[in-house]
Amino acid sequence: MLLEIENLHASVEGKPILKGVSLAIAPGEVHAIMGPNGSGKSTLAFVLAGREGYEVTEGSIRFGDEDLLAMEPEERARAGLFLAMQYPVEIPGVGNLYFLRQALNAIRKARGLEEISAAEFMRKAREEARRLGIGEDLLKRDLNVGFSGGEKKRNEILQMALLEPRLAVLDETDSGLDIDALRTVAEGVNRMRRPDRAFLVITHYQRLLEYIVPDVVHVMVDGRIRRTGGPELARELEERGYEGFLGRLAA
């Protein structure tokens, strides 16, 4: 397994949010987590990435051979965990590509690789940007500063493509995207699917899963995974809505 979550409990400011999540993802798989707002989906993403303030009270997470919870956020990133964020932050004065190159080199250095040459980096970044419909001007601007919602999300996918993670967690990457942007982003993800790489796609809507077809769908409700199934589960949710689905679960 690439990622193994066992009975994970986590709190934010003393309030329990995750209440016993178990999940296993094998290399090459795409898993989706769906669930209503407030069910704990984003909390799970932040716990995986090691964000401060998200306190694990019970359970374990293994990432490959390693104990993920013992690692600092940057160590997790260097080990190949990438989180495409729902709200990418702005960093004024720091160029978009400059930032990405710093990140790539930090990861390469941790893996004992040489720094990427400026020319090689530019070539890769431009190529990927073109595929994602990211204009040259966006590459030159300050990181996320004044980017539209869609531009920010595309930029997250650009970073993901260049950092080449083993596990990519996409936290509501579809929110705020129009249909064209959604398709471009999904294509970016699909291009990256490989036998040794896995994805965890967190979404509120089934829409994204028409373009990124998952192997496994989990439904999270109130901090627990209530059902696990194939892609058909997403369609069922879409038809009945969470309320109908929850009602059935309660029944």
């Binding site: 956020p73 940057e74 989180l83 964020m85 990140a103 950092l163």
Partner: peptide, 14 residues
């Protein structure tokens, strides 16, 4: 902000 620091660290930067 904590957000900025976390974002950088999530990308592998110390």
């Amino acid at each position: 902000s904590e957000d900025q620091l976390f974002y950088c660290r999530q990308r592998g930067i110390s």
